[in-house]
Simulated assay, not measured.
Amino acid sequence: MNTSWVLLIGALLFVWRWARRSGFPSTTRQSAPPVLRSDIRGEEGERRVYEELLDALTWICGENFFLHPGALLLNHAPGTAYPTAEVDHLAITPFGIFLVETKDWTGLIEPGPDSGTLIRTGADGKREARTSPLRQNRSKVAFLRSVLPALWTIEGVGVFASDNCVLSPALPVSVMLREDLRQWLRARQALHAKRCSVPVDVAKAWKAIQSVANTDDTALRKHRERLRVNPKNLPILS
């Protein structure tokens, strides 16, 4: 090979390596948001709750239910800064539609100073005020009630996935541990039958929800990025 070509190739390699070390943006690849440890924990907790839901609903309903395989977005406020709301798990059964908010918190969970707040005490004794999963679900439940038949039961549920979590008995019954889901759903089925409530048409309900929902992975990622840029954290208590 001609010496001048060797020198030219060497110079180009030097410039390319220097540009990479200097942090110049790539023209062929876009950097993805960093995967946080909390994200991994959250996804693992959601997987465990999904499996518990699937097992419980199969036991109670046979094949007559729908459980969405993963999170989905409700287009509850078009045109606003936060037009979508994420639902961790959507379960549609003949005895009700349930929006499940999953938390992978550890420690002792107790009622807070108001119905929208919980107090978490960690292993180090530090007490934190955190938003209740029932409060997080409130607007989503209200939205679905506004677009679905009024006679259908629609509820929000808060489920704690971690085995290292203890719940105060003073919490509402719709805030529960993962292993409580089966009996809670069974009790809801019995209550629905006792009240002679109108059964939910599972297929019709899912079709209606699809018209106001988004299950696209890209939309879900963008939604989470918006929330990450503008976190809504509650203060730590003394």
Rank of each mutant, 00 (worst) to 15 (best):
R228C: 05
L227F: 02
E225T: 03
R221D: 08
P231S: 10
N233I: 08
S211H: 14
A219S: 11
S211G: 13
A213T: 11
R221G: 03
A208E: 04
K207D: 13
R224G: 01
N214K: 06
P231I: 08
A219L: 04
N233V: 04
V212I: 11
Q210K: 11
V229C: 04
A208P: 01
A203Q: 12
V212G: 01
P231E: 07
A203N: 10
Q210Y: 12
T218V: 11
E225Y: 02
V212F: 01
L227C: 11
V229L: 11
P235Q: 03
N230L: 13
A213L: 03
V212L: 03
L220E: 02
A219W: 00
A205L: 14
K232N: 12
W206V: 14
L234M: 12
H223S: 02
D201H: 00
Q210T: 15
D201E: 05
D216Y: 02
A219G: 02
K222N: 15
I236T: 13
A203H: 13
R228A: 10
H223G: 02
K222Y: 11
K204I: 02
D216A: 02
V229P: 00
Q210P: 06
P235I: 09
R228S: 14
D201L: 02
N214I: 12
R221Q: 10
L234N: 10
D216W: 01
L227Y: 07
V202C: 06
R224V: 04
P235M: 14
R224Y: 10
I236W: 05
A213M: 02
E225V: 12
K207S: 15
E225W: 10
D216S: 04
K207V: 14
P231F: 06
K207P: 07
R228L: 12
I209E: 03
D201F: 00
R224S: 02
K232G: 03
P231M: 09
P231R: 07
D217L: 13
E225F: 06
R221W: 07
D201I: 00
N230H: 13
A205S: 05
R221A: 11
R221F: 05
P235N: 06
A219H: 00
E225S: 03
L220N: 07
R226Y: 03
K222F: 09
N233T: 09
K232R: 12
L234H: 05
S211N: 14
L220H: 07
E225I: 09
L220W: 01
I209V: 14
A219Q: 12
V212C: 03
E225Q: 12
D217S: 04
K222R: 15
A219V: 08
E225H: 11
D217H: 06
D217K: 09
D217C: 10
N230I: 12
H223M: 05
A205P: 12
R224I: 05
N230V: 13
